[in-house]
Design a protein around this nucleic acid. Structure first.
Lengths: 229, 229
DNA sequence: ACCGGGTACCTGCTACCGTCAGTACCGGAT
DNA sequence: ATCCGGTACTGACGGTAGCAGGTACCCGGT
């Protein structure tokens, strides 16, 4: 390797994160549909700089997603850690997984509440024309994606421990985050905290559903029921 | 109303549905990110016509969503009807709600499988800048949205019948379709049928999760929980 | 050893292209 | 007189070209 090129590596990485950070600020102040020109202007530079660091808008999206991704995963694992520490050696060890779930859900909702525009940006994955759809690279993208994989991993472990097939694990991972995401999206659309539903309540409802499923709702008692009205 | 303008009403409605239909064809053949020019060209007309019938791209999106929406709701209720008819006076009436759920999930997945580009189009809601975000009108949009409301209604009924609070119903409605949607999205991304996961299997996994929740997975020592499988 | 030119990469800028959403306007039908 | 439909435009935005600097590294001549 030539020293003339490796010299820039550190600077490059630093600048890249600066630009991502500036993009986040721009998204916050101008909304999720900011133009790159605007982002650059707010970053005090020009569009070309961005295109030098990220191949295109999708690339920038990917970088931002990665950043938010890391941040939210950190939040989640911290929340989970807190819960575990709290319930450590406590009265009711069986509730721990449920509380962990609740903490994770809450951490996700926290992003929606405190940074709605960034959330919107992240959630609106760019729509690529079929001609340039590549089989690769898109794995790292998308916050939901990577959280889902993590959760899927946890579920696989639990399923294995319970002596059951781990087949459904990946699907369930996606399903669980999709659940929270959909509820979060609607919450955001309705105005989040200003909509009459508190984050606390939402967390509670979601946890209950994910944990217990719908079976608890439908009375298993008689043959007279049919949910159609 | 003037007869000279009401005269066109019928023609207008008909043309509108024609245009929506043509849009669907265009989406199928050119992908979810078709330009309106292309849609018009494939429809054998020009862009102006579209803008006379739909205020803007979002309006067209809305109309298409409405159309797909109706279609999928019809599919779902037909599937549900089939299941109910089948289990009518059958041995195990208590499983009906679960089967109904499975049928609904399958109907949704069917759209993903048979019409992936249309699905992509529908699912990629346009990203509106904050300045022109209106508190109104967006309710009818988005297939997920309206399915969620339906499901939420059903859940509310069930909750009421079980003597429980109906507060979580709307959230659960969104959560349930979000679940299916997320799993469906990932399935689509992975290549749907060609990904090693069959629609049948996906349906089974999802139904199981929605119905039973995660509690069954984690080994529990207290006795208040439903048995696993 | 050191000095200077070439090199490899950065930065900022202006100007441009292509695409595409959305509009103005005109001509034609009834 | 009023709606239809088409052509031709505007404007915004993603993305590129190409220029003029600037700075650290490489290397060969002295």
């Amino acid at each position: 390797m030539d020293g003339r090129s490796s010299r820039w590596d550190e600077h490059r990485a630093q600048r890249r994160t600066e630009l991502v950070e500036a993009t986040l600020r721009a998204i916050r102040s101008r909304g999720a549909s900011v133009a790159i020109d605007d982002i650059a202007a707010l970053a005090g530079t020009s569009k070309t700089v961005f295109y030098r660091h990220f191949t295109d808008r999708a690339g920038l999206y990917g970088a931002v997603a990665e950043r938010v991704n890391a941040s939210i995963l950190r939040d989640i694992s911290r929340a989970v850690g807190d819960v575990l520490a709290l319930s450590d050696g406590q009265t009711e060890p069986t509730t721990a997984p449920r509380d962990v779930l609740a903490a994770a859900v809450d951490a996700y909702l926290s992003l929606v509440e405190t940074d709605p525009e960034v959330y919107r940006f992240i959630v609106a994955a760019p729509l690529v024309p079929p001609s340039e759809r590549t089989e690769t690279i898109d794995l790292a993208w998308s916050v939901s994606q990577s959280i889902a994989v993590q959760i899927g991993g946890l579920i696989a472990v639990a399923l294995g421990a319970a002596g059951r097939s781990t087949d459904p694990a990946p699907t369930w991972g996606h399903a669980v985050v999709g659940m929270v995401r959909a509820a979060g999206d609607d919450w955001l659309r309705a105005g989040a905290a200003g909509s009459g539903t508190s984050r606390e309540m939402l967390k509670e409802h979601l946890t209950e559903l994910i944990w217990g499923g719908l079976s608890a709702v439908f009375p298993v008692t008689t043959d007279t029921d049919s949910p159609q009205e």
